[in-house]
Simulated assay, not measured.
Amino acid sequence: MDGMRVRFEIKNLNIRVGNVTRDSQSYVLLTAYDDSNNEIVLELTHEQAGFLEDQFYEANLRYEQRIVPEQQPEPNTFFKQSFTNPHDQGNDQIR
């Protein structure tokens, strides 16, 4: 099987995504272009686009988890409340 391997390094990349329907077939067109209007066009099936969407989501989630300091969850305030001390006579308030 013959194959081709290509690697592009493009700076200032712009991305345009479109849904195309032609001859009762639908696909996603992903166009990446630079400031000089050099472009790379990828024709993806909706399944491939869905997979790519999931990959972007997971990559961004990992990035956000690394950047945002981990916040401790708020403790349940119900359990922090102490009820009336039996030594406090006639005091029925929750502290």
Rank of each mutant, 00 (worst) to 15 (best):
G3W: 14
M4C: 12
R7E: 15
F8T: 04
F8W: 09
E9V: 10
E9W: 08
I10N: 04
K11A: 01
K11C: 05
L13C: 14
R16H: 08
G18S: 15
T21W: 03
T21L: 07
R22W: 12
S24P: 08
Q25G: 08
V28D: 06
L29P: 02
L29D: 04
T31I: 09
T31G: 06
Y33C: 04
Y33G: 00
D35K: 12
N37H: 04
L44W: 00
L44D: 00
H46A: 05
E47D: 11
G50N: 07
L52G: 07
D54T: 03
Q55K: 11
Q55S: 14
Q55N: 02
Y57D: 00
E58S: 03
E58Y: 04
E58M: 08
A59D: 02
L61T: 03
Y63C: 12
Q65N: 13
R66S: 08
I67Q: 06
I67L: 10
V68Q: 14
V68Y: 01
E70V: 07
E70P: 03
Q71R: 13
Q72G: 01
Q72D: 01
P73Y: 06
P75Q: 00
P75H: 02
N76Q: 03
F78D: 11
S82I: 15
T84A: 13
N85S: 11
P86E: 07
P86M: 13
H87F: 09
H87S: 08
D88R: 09
Q89M: 05
D92Q: 12
I94C: 07
R95Y: 08
